[in-house]
Amino acid sequence: MPAFREFKFLALRRISQISIMLLFVSGNLLGWHVLRGNLSTSKVLNSVPLTDPFAVLQIFAARHLISGEALVGALIIVLFFGLIAGRSFCSWVCPLNMVTDLANWLRKKTGLDASDNGPVISRKTRYWVIVTSLAVSLATGLAAFEWISPISMLQRGIIFGMGMGWTMILAVFLFDLFVKKDGFCGHLCPLGGFYSLTTRFSLVRVRHSQEKCTLCMKCLEICPEPQVLPMLGKTSSAVVSGECTNCGRCVEVCSDNAMKFGTRFFPGENKTSIV
């Protein structure tokens, strides 16, 4: 049994992901007003609108306008993740993350991981998927990704009933398990790509301390986006790539205290750490 500090962020993330879903479910089934709607568009306490900004972008690409309320909701989300929280939507909110993390965990347990990381798929593919979804939105007049998104299928399925939506989710699970490590979230998902692009300058960052690092590479092994850690053992700096999901796995597994949550500013070491 590993010590609690080795999975405290993991536990917090699961609590965050599950309670957000439960609040949505209670909004639908019990009429609670804390959080209603779903991850596409929702209302907090019947007043504050929240909207998926990538969905709004696609609606614009489909040559349609959307209400001011929905725009305000999208702006709130963009500002929150873009200025403060980074790409944490993917690891702290999105329920599909639990599915792909399960696939990843099974890869490790079964040794699928050791043999092969799967076919070469560029991590930049997600940006091509963004371009494609906007082009398809333009061509069809529909918000393209919203019609096929496994994230939508899963979260709407949890809140309103799954129907045949599980096939898409199973497909993502099997893809991540058998075809490609971190295949969906780390390579294909345009929503993750959207947040990568819009959170490059966000405040909350993992910070690396070169002095403390013993180059054990545990963080690199556990990281779902290992390309964001080029500074390991070389320089003390913040993880500045927008592709980092702020999941905090690296912080947990580091036995040298060389990874900490902090901010992108104030290069001074531990005094700026917020955890």
């Binding site: 909004g27 639908n28 009429g31 209603r36 709607g37 779903n38 596409s40 568009t41 929702s42 209302k43 909207t51 998926d52 969905a55 609606i59 489909a62 040559r63 349609h64 306008l65 959307i66 929905a70 007049g141 529909l142 918000a143 919203e146 939508s152 709407r156 809140i159 309103f160």
Partner: peptide
């Protein structure tokens, strides 16, 4: 409608 509905289900709720 198909373009602007974000499938949030607020009307259903």
């Amino acid at each position: 409608f198909l373009a602007t509905c974000t499938k949030c289900g607020l009307c259903v709720e």
